[in-house]
Simulated scan of single mutants.
Amino acid sequence: MRALRILLIITVILGGIFVAADRIAVNLAESEAADKIKSSQGLSSTPEISIKGFPFLTQVAGKELEEVDVSLTGITATAGGHSVNVTEVKAELRNVKIDSTFSSAVADRADGSARISYADLTKAAPKGATVGYAGADRAAKGQVKVTGPLTDLLDGAGIQVPGAFKGLLAGRTVSTYSTVALKGGSTVQLRAESLPTLPVPGFDEKLRKVIDYDLKIDGMPSSIKLDKVQATDGGLRFSGTGTSVSLAG
């Protein structure tokens, strides 16, 4: 019995050593992958990497990881020369194959998501405009609320109002619901549902050109195509999928 107890103790100790070695190895691999992703994607900060599955060393021996989760920061959206942060950027990569030199990896499939807050959407909006949550019913239709003083919107776009008409526009506020759509997998379009009729000839079309604008999301892996956008109470949430997505290299 004493020999059996000793054997069990040794087994537990060896098992603990293996688990410790496995966790050390996965931590080193996560750190190395994070540095490579930062370099290859040109990010301003190091992403967070989480390699799932146990044991890790067995997966490495087979040169395929079951799942790798990536959280990115330093992603931006641009519109009209303005740059804003994209928050909560995540990618879940499945069946990640490692090459023979362990220098790069490619995932069979990746599910990506990102969120832009209304505060950041406002930063990229036309000067004078505020973008906000439109309520549950409108959000279900993929709409956001856009508001702003009419004269501020026109002045911000460099549109001159003839002096004879300035009094007619003073004090007016534009309030509309804009439908959000995706184009080309990386460009977000905001298009107003309706706009007020202005008492100045030709200015209805000019206001439309101010309110309707595009946002281009930069920095996402090119092989992940965003194909869905949702308006939530916290901002716009985007999601998409990709195949043969490079994790590092």
Rank of each mutant, 00 (worst) to 15 (best):
V144Y: 00
S50A: 11
K52Y: 00
K123H: 12
V161I: 15
I51P: 01
K63A: 09
E48I: 14
A105V: 02
L65R: 03
K123L: 13
A129Q: 04
Y133S: 12
K145H: 09
V146C: 06
P162E: 03
A105P: 00
I75L: 08
R115L: 08
A134M: 09
S45H: 09
V106A: 06
K141Y: 13
E67T: 07
A129W: 00
R94F: 09
A79P: 06
G62I: 05
T122H: 07
T73D: 15
G128R: 09
N95I: 12
K145T: 10
I159K: 02
V146S: 03
S71D: 14
S71F: 10
H82C: 03
L168F: 10
L93S: 02
D120W: 02
D137L: 15
L72H: 06
V68S: 12
D99F: 08
G62K: 03
A79G: 10
S113T: 11
V70R: 01
G81P: 10
K127L: 14
G142R: 03
V89I: 04
A107M: 13
G135W: 06
T101H: 05
V89L: 00
G148T: 12
E48N: 13
G135V: 12
L43W: 04
A157T: 07
D155S: 15
T76N: 07
L43N: 09
T147R: 08
K52I: 01
K63N: 10
T78C: 05
L57S: 01
A125N: 05
L169V: 13
S45K: 09
A105Y: 00
A110E: 09
S117L: 05
G132W: 01
G167K: 15
F165W: 09
G112E: 10
G148I: 07
G148R: 01
E48R: 13
K127F: 13
R94Y: 10
S104E: 12
L169W: 05
A157G: 13
D152S: 15
S100G: 08
G80N: 10
I98F: 04
L57Y: 13
A77K: 02
V84P: 05
A91F: 08
S117Y: 05
D111V: 14
K166I: 11
A79K: 05
Q160S: 14
F54E: 06
Y133L: 14
K52G: 11
G167S: 15
L150A: 02
R138Y: 11
L72K: 03
E88H: 06
D137K: 14
T130Y: 10
E66I: 05
L168W: 10
A134Y: 06
K166R: 15
T101Y: 07
L168S: 15
G128Q: 08
S45C: 13
K145L: 11
A170C: 06
S117Q: 07
L154S: 07
D111C: 01
G62T: 09
A114F: 11
D99G: 06
Q59A: 12
D111S: 12
E66V: 12
S45W: 06
I98R: 02
T76E: 08
K63P: 01
R138V: 07
T78V: 12
A139F: 02
A61G: 09
R138W: 00
P149V: 08
S44I: 13
V70C: 00
V96P: 05
A91N: 07
Y133T: 11
E64V: 14
F102I: 02
Q143H: 13
V96M: 05
L65H: 06
V131D: 04
V146Q: 00
P126V: 08
A107H: 02
V70A: 03
F56A: 04
L93Q: 10
T101R: 01
G74F: 02
T147F: 02
